[in-house]
């Protein structure tokens, strides 16, 4: 629940999602669900030349299970809030 809530609060911000197949996509976070499936808008692929088939993709749905990383915007990270939420979650809250 912690990261689902976290990503819900991040909606509207720019993130870079890096997939397990090395494809990296930058875009505006449009929505997220409980599986951490992600929808991005106004997307652009970081290494466009390597992925020509992605040229006209503007919006996309990414299956949560194929995500390796999400690069987060610094203004979307409140470390104190995250520490508290993590301790609460660890207690089974």
């Amino acid at each position: 629940m912690l990261f689902f809530s976290y990503f819900k609060d991040l909606v509207g911000r720019e993130v870079t999602v890096e997939l397990k197949n090395d494809l990296a996509i930058r875009g505006t976070l449009h929505s997220v669900d409980q599986y951490l499936n992600i929808k991005l808008e106004n997307t652009r692929v970081v290494d466009q030349d390597k992925y020509p088939h992605m040229l006209s993709v503007r919006n996309c749905f990414i299956r949560g299970s194929v995500v390796r990383y999400v690069q987060l915007p610094p203004e979307g990270v409140d470390t104190d809030l995250l520490h508290d939420a993590t301790r609460r979650e660890a207690r089974g809250g």
């Binding site: 197949n21 494809l23 993709v57 990414i62």
Partner: peptide, 22 residues
Amino acid sequence: RGENVVLIGELDLEREELPPHM
């Protein structure tokens, strides 16, 4: 089957699907 899906992309019809050199 869902577990084989990486990404579903909506294609922008205004844009070229592939680069011109292809």
